[in-house]
Design a protein around this nucleic acid. Structure first.
Lengths: 183, 183
DNA sequence: CAGGCCATGTAACAGGTTACATGATTCT
DNA sequence: AGAATCATGTAACCTGTTACATGGCCTG
């Protein structure tokens, strides 16, 4: 039950059409909640049926015609309710750690290269986040909204920092493994 | 396509029945790949049909009767293949960050209490991991397998450390928000 | 033999993924 | 007119979630 609320948030920030939403998910919200355009269209239909959003006037509902949505009061209320409601953190699902655990049983053949590849990807993501931080958040303290956004970005930066450090450490361990005792 | 491989790994570590697997998922593998008993039974059926595992002899297949599985050579081969295959990291899905982003739009009412609650939960998880580290991994360097397992545990510890730090920082920010400028 | 627990399983549904289809617009 | 692209949408499938059903075993 998160995608509809992600969409409501995005639409409150700026009324958009389905494809515009998809693009914005690829950039910002998708950093911690990704979605494909099919998911988004499906969900837009539901949200409209429930009376949380409405298609902005001036367009007829034909196929291939751009259609923008705006959030209705009921939608904003539902988003506020969901935001304030307590939710348990879900255990992470991480394939790489799972593969490492499997490697402890069936052998580490081939996984080191992928660790290296992941390290590069995380370094790249980290650099992207830091660039955004430089650009959007100067040293002075902005509005309350700015500080919240910065806080979220900080989570992204710290997470990617964790991964790059851990992967670096893991690769060092791997070198130790192969020099000291072979497979 | 990760659950079947998680199960193969667990079965290689130790042949088990469905419920035993469920319990082990709750403890160790579930720290980064959780699963309910329904998922596990469904997947055990598929794995058996594909010839990756087989029910150990000595039990008849009646309902309510314990049934243990062991991994066949084809299963081990499939696990090795999957472990070595390159996979892209998937963007994280984090509800809490999503809620913070929503809070930037509809107001932070009520979310601070949940941040505090999450902080406690992550501290607890961190303590649990550190206890395991104390108990299972001494100062000396063990076998290659031990070092891999330790590496995975380190990821858990560092992740929980990240969350506790970030949540602490976030709560400080919130105090700043309410004293300095109200809602 | 009643109640509780252990163990396996079915069913219905929600959410996410992949492949493909179709109408409109723009460019050549 | 044809091709490329933009935009919306359908369909099938897979994974994960929730609720419930059933049989066997143990204990009082």
């Amino acid at each position: 039950m998160s995608l509809p609320h992600a969409i409501l948030t995005a639409l409150l920030e700026k009324p958009s059409s389905g494809l515009e939403l998809t693009r914005r998910f690829d950039r910002s919200i998708g950093y911690f909640w990704s979605a494909t355009h099919q998911q988004i269209y499906r969900e837009l239909g539901k949200l409209e049926a429930e009376g949380y959003i409405r298609a902005l006037p001036s367009q007829q509902p034909t196929r291939g015609q751009k259609k923008s949505y705006g959030v209705l009061p009921a939608g904003r209320a539902e988003l506020a309710r969901w935001t304030a409601a307590s939710q348990d953190p879900k255990p992470p699902r991480d394939t790489l750690l799972l593969r490492l655990r499997a490697a402890a049983v069936v052998g580490t053949e081939g996984i080191e290269a992928d660790l290296r590849r992941h390290l590069v990807l995380h370094q790249r993501q980290l650099a992207e986040y830091e660039e955004i931080e430089q650009r959007d958040f100067g040293p002075g303290r902005g509005t309350a909204q700015d500080r919240l956004q910065h806080l979220i970005l900080r989570a992204g930066i710290d997470l990617e920092t964790f991964w790059t450090r851990w992967l670096t450490h893991a690769l060092e361990e791997f070198e130790g493994l192969s020099t000291a005792e072979g497979s």
